[in-house]
Design a protein around this nucleic acid. Sequence first.
DNA 1: CCAATTTGACCTTT
DNA 2: AAAGGTCAAATTGG
Length: 299
Amino acid sequence: MDWEQKTLLNELKEGREVTNQLMKHLHPSSSNQTRQLLLDKILCSYDKALSILSWNGFVVETKPTLTAFESSPAIDHSSEVSDKKHVLKKRKTSSGETQQLRVCSEKSLDNPLDDGYCWRKYGQKAILGSNFPRGYYRCTHRHSQGCLATKQVQRSDNDPTNFEVKYRGRHTCNQASHSAVTFVPISAESKTRKRPYQLEETQKQVQHTFLSFETGLKALIENDIMGSLSLAFVSPATSESNYFSVSPCHMGSFESDLTDIISDPTSVSNSPIGDLDISSLDKLEFDPSFPFDNPEFFS
DNA sequence: CCAATTTGACCTTT
DNA sequence: AAAGGTCAAATTGG
């Protein structure tokens, strides 16, 4: 079993474990704070697990519109023998859809390529037809926190002062405290880009996502503690961790953006974080029909 | 001494 | 076979 699978399994186990703990705290004697804490943990585990799955191309099959970024399929390992059939099948159709493409220009003058996150370089390759090599970075907290965010950085041929940055995967780590404020929750429907989302809307969406995703938790929340916790549960502001951290952006109508941004560097914000959060809204979707209850998947 | 980077080998996909 | 992406040992730097 490789690292990814272990992490996935651990997160699911953790989620189950904490859910059990939460169950024990359903007594009126327990404090809402405690329950909130447990809920936070549960959601965090789910988020990481989903992040891993999305990284493997599982979750976005329902978004066939996003084909602009022709990226290579996600990580695979030859040790994944038993579930390879599943993986391959899924990946074939969803390859390139889960990825986030972000192109921005950065002046080498002020803090080049610093987007507020801690990245660790893990590779560099010469790219055919490009004068400059492409750098591969992953989140520094990949192993400590299981954060699967990566990015690719390549200097533009046309304008060497510009860097094209492709972000892939979502941050599930707690870094860059300032960014937690501006993170935009998952959005499932709107393809309108650069449109600020109303909080209520996204909250509902997030809530719906998780509720429809885990029926046990759903029942738990609706029947037992929703009354006392619904507000806190729905509100991202109550959470300390970045559940909805910078997330994969589906291309949508991004093709036009691409050329725009490249040809007009000044149109790009100097603070990729803020810009990213608003413009590259995550449209990650959880396929409701995804066979999470299928034992074969984890075999 | 530890952590980040470099860099050629290796793997996957086309 | 070639290209892009990742791994990991060696190297570098704080």
